[in-house]
Write a protein that binds this DNA or RNA. Structure first.
Lengths: 211, 211
DNA sequence: CCGATTATGGACACGCTGTTCAGAAACAGC
DNA sequence: GCTGTTTCTGAACAGCGTGTCCATAATCGG
């Protein structure tokens, strides 16, 4: 069960997924027809529907692989940090470029983006301190959305731009942009009367005494 | 041309757009058929194609309205701030809820999201200091993507959650999350030679947190 | 080598798209 | 109110993508 026994099955599925990913580099997912996929994969139409009920079913296979890769425990040096999986995300995207490129870069298409976003959101939710006070300056779910959006935007920029940045460099940019805001949001809400105007002029908080 | 002369035309177009927006509250854009729209709008099929070549054409009308509303000069008190249009965005979203809800909340669909995102990205690009040094810690386009993503995530959260937050409150959250990161990113890049060797350990110069 | 599983091509009904056209309805101006 | 113009309407049409079915051929594991 873990590994499909029959070689034909593995061969067919791999061919279909590869074809889909290759096509996703050009067209958005919704514009790709089953005919396109089986044509490029050299697979009969009936065969496709023997394995998947849908285009989406095929894509789900790819997404599951991505999720499994990203969710494994954070690498060594990032243990105690604020968003421990960040480098993990960028590293695995780097390692699985064709899949990641199909998921995040170019014209993604609605279902793809939605699902890929959900994977990232789960990672973020697990990485964020589980709202100990529940009285933050920004509600937890909004925070999750913010961080997820930052992942998405950085990934898109990275995969679309031709600059050959390393995962480490992108991770550094990501953290520079996100961490200060998360720290600010994780503080208990500012007093609504006294310090309302203060937020605009807030220093970049070089040292947030977290003791 | 500014105002379509014939009343029938205005009536028809308005009915079609309203129908589309209403339907977008339930289904993603791609799942809505022309038949759905004209059925709800009580309009003949030929009539639809007399005005628009496409579902997308109809939506474009809505997007143009949104863009026009958001791009007008920033309101008074936000003059000299870092992202002067931020409150503008949230205020106009609040004022045009049905449209905004269709564009940002719920299952949006690929073309909608892409275009709405482009509108926001243009606003952000105009709001960001036009890279005076060009040697920032984060490339300008990545920064634009980051801020745009933050807009999107906050808007989605706001429109999806039932908490009746005011535009001002959401704007405050937005700025608390985004401004510190933008300030950090807008600093000239860390000295490339001195500190570059230990890049692998991550952490920007400013925010190396020790747990 | 053989029985079981999988791949294949072709045909089918269905739904959505975008176009065309002749006639009915609503409009603006006098 | 009348008239010429513009717009709406319903129905029909070809084209394409979807998902299903089935008998047959190819490939697998043992």
């Amino acid at each position: 069960m873990v590994t499909t026994p029959d070689r034909r099955v593995r061969r067919t599925r791999r061919a279909l997924l590869d074809a889909l990913l290759a096509l996703m580099a050009d067209k958005p997912f919704d514009a790709i027809t089953v005919a396109d996929v089986i044509d490029r994969a050299d697979v009969g139409r009936s065969t496709f529907y023997n394995h998947y009920t849908d285009k989406a079913g095929l894509l789900a296979d790819g997404l599951a692989a991505f999720r499994a890769a990203v969710e494994q425990p954070a690498c060594g040096p990032a243990a105690g940090r604020l968003l421990p999986h960040s480098l993990n995300v960028f590293s695995h995207v780097h390692a699985h470029q064709p899949l990641a490129r199909a998921l995040f870069a170019g014209p993604a298409g609605a279902p793809v983006l939605h699902q890929a976003q959900a994977v990232l959101a789960d990672v973020v939710r697990a990485d964020l301190p589980s709202d100990p006070h529940e009285m933050l300056a920004v509600p937890t779910e909004a925070l999750v959305g913010f961080v997820t959006g930052a992942y998405l935007s950085l990934l898109r920029w990275w995969l679309d731009s031709d600059t050959g940045n390393t995962p480490q460099e992108v991770d550094r940019m990501f953290r520079a942009l996100v961490v200060p805001g998360v720290r600010a949001a994780a503080r208990p809400a500012v007093a609504p009367h006294a310090g309302a105007a203060r937020t605009a002029s807030g220093g970049t908080g070089a040292a947030t005494a977290r003791a």
